[in-house]
């Protein structure tokens, strides 16, 4: 099946080990996501692309249980077929990143649980092309870790 990424330069793709692409200010060291043309802290234009870590912890979360309006949302399922998705901020070593969460809307989520980056299809274009975005999923067996 044909696939496309929702936006170029958002994460590595195609890739076996994709990472989110941010920017790092060469003046004040602030890491921003997605990659900015300028530093949102000091305003410097001297920024360089940087890759973010792929593992972190869930900082806060909710579930999107009503269907966002299309447009801008690319999902085209009938309202009755909309199942919803988790949304959260993942605390990575560099920054807290907002993301869709994989898993059903009834899967338990807990602040502090370990999460890892993945790439998922979330919508389909009129010609059948799957649209991919980044998301985070719970790290399996993370309950046993300390």
């Amino acid at each position: 099946m044909a696939q496309r990424v929702v936006a170029e330069g958002l994460f590595d793709w195609p890739s076996d080990e994709p990472r989110l692409i941010g920017s790092k200010c060469q003046v004040c060291d602030l890491v921003a996501f997605p990659a900015y043309p300028n530093c949102p802290n000091c305003g410097s234009l001297d920024v360089a692309e940087t890759r973010l870590s792929t593992r972190g912890t869930l900082w806060t979360w909710t579930r999107q249980r009503f269907q966002p309006k299309n447009p801008p949302y690319l999902g085209t399922e009938a309202a009755a077929d909309f199942v919803g998705y988790g949304v959260g901020y993942i605390e990575l070593p560099e920054a807290r990143v907002e993301a869709r969460l994989t898993g059903g809307v009834d899967e338990p989520l807990e602040i502090g649980q370990e999460m890892e980056l993945t790439v998922v299809p979330f919508a389909t274009d009129a010609d059948g092309t799957e649209v991919l975005t980044y998301a985070f999923r719970p790290v399996e067996n993370s309950a046993g870790k300390n």
């Binding site: 936006a7 909710t62 949302y73």
Partner: peptide, 26 residues
Amino acid sequence: LPAWYGETGLFLTPKFFAMKIQRYMY
């Protein structure tokens, strides 16, 4: 903000308020 933010279903006000109070409650 970038277009993908709306296209992926993240450009929504209610879920922000939900996540802010979720963290605040914790």
